[in-house]
């Protein structure tokens, strides 16, 4: 009798695990394809924290940093995890950009899109002593002489900070995008370069400029968000308000490996959907100045395809597009 009961129980357990009803039944690895402290890392850790605090995921989520290749290392690692329901990764626009510029042969098509959970935005900042008082003035100066304004950013040539400026410049009617000087400052010296007058405008993430604005050392001329952002930078106009019909969203979302089992995909989509509705998540969004967003599954995939085409267009104009 006892033996039979055990057998039935075991069979039941086996069936449960086959149908994935207990998924996840072991710790999940969440990969941040950058170093500690960066945007991906922050997003991964905050999300892991919220999922735990709200009890949406009771299994441990282990955040693992896998920096290198602008995210390419993490992306390549996901190719060794095909079909694995226990590894997910956080990504943002560089996922598309590093493929378009030929840094990696893998693309967003080599992952299973789960959900986009937040929007971050870019900002264009000048030193408090700058003669420019609006983004429009900068664009006008560029129209007369594309070399007259020196643009700096953190990310590499052809990556986010550069692209967001060019998207704005293109919409403002600047034609010679290729002639605009863009210098990448990757050693933490970007703000010093701006405040010291070594560059005229800094094009980078919103969060990176907030500190200097608060300290009274820099001014932000425009944000790339569709609406004004909350908090300290709420007095800063959007590009559209300034008469430039453009926006740039630094979307961040989660992906599984290719061929992730469908029960796992559904699990994560519904988990993230529940997460973005919690007050804990709202709190985090406010703390970090992030915008609310939720796009999942096939919609997310369609978004990626559309965005990929937009980036491709800009990169082709710069001669940086390395596809066929």
């Amino acid at each position: 009798m006892k033996v039979r009961l055990t057998a039935v129980l075991l069979l039941g357990l086996l069936m449960l695990s086959v149908f994935g009803a207990t998924y996840p039944d072991k710790p999940v690895t969440l990969i941040a394809p950058g170093s500690p402290g960066g945007g991906w890392d922050t997003t991964a850790r905050v999300v892991a924290q919220v999922l735990k605090e709200t009890g949406l995921v009771t299994q441990t989520i282990v955040v693992t940093n896998m920096p290198g290749g602008g995210g390419g290392i993490g992306l390549a690692h996901m190719q060794t995890k095909v079909g694995d329901p226990y590894t997910i990764i956080v990504f943002s626009p560089p996922l598309l950009l590093i493929n378009l510029t030929g840094q990696t042969k893998y693309s967003f098509k080599d992952l299973t899109p789960l959900a986009m959970v937040l929007h971050d935005y870019g900002a264009f900042a000048v030193s408090k002593k700058s003669k420019y008082t609006s983004i429009k003035e900068i664009m006008e100066a560029l129209k007369t002489n594309p070399k007259s304004v020196k643009v700096g950013g953190i990310s590499a040539y052809g990556s986010m900070d550069h692209i967001q400026f060019l998207i704005a410049a293109k919409a403002a009617g600047v034609t010679s995008l290729k002639d605009i000087t863009y210098v990448s400052f990757q050693e933490g010296d970007h703000l010093a370069a701006l405040l010291g007058g070594h560059i005229d405008v800094l094009s980078t993430g919103l969060a990176e400029t907030v500190n200097a604005v608060q300290a009274g050392a820099a001014r932000v001329l425009a944000v790339t968000a569709p609406q004004r952002v909350a908090g300290l930078l709420s007095m800063v106009p959007t590009l559209r308000e300034e008469g430039i019909d453009a926006e740039f969203v630094n979307w961040r979302g989660f992906f599984g490996p290719l061929n992730m089992p469908s029960h796992a995909v559904e699990y994560w989509i519904s988990t993230f959907k529940n997460m973005v509705e919690t007050p804990t998540w709202e709190n985090k969004l406010a703390n970090y100045g992030w915008g609310r967003a939720f796009v999942a599954g096939t919609d997310f995939k369609a978004f990626l395809e559309k965005t990929n085409d937009l980036y491709k267009e800009i990169l082709s104009e710069l001669g940086l597009y390395k596809g066929e």
Binding site: S35, P36, G37, T42, G188, L191, A192, L195, A207, V210, N211, A212, Q214, A215, G216, A217, L232, N287, Y288
Partner: peptide, 24 residues
């Protein structure tokens, strides 16, 4: 100035921001 002088300082700035505090 709100300029992180090193990777380590950048992470400390991040911590300040988590508290909603601004340097300067």
């Amino acid at each position: 100035l709100g300029i992180p002088g090193s990777g380590t300082a950048a992470i400390m700035l991040g911590a300040l921001m988590m508290y909603g505090l601004q340097p300067g």
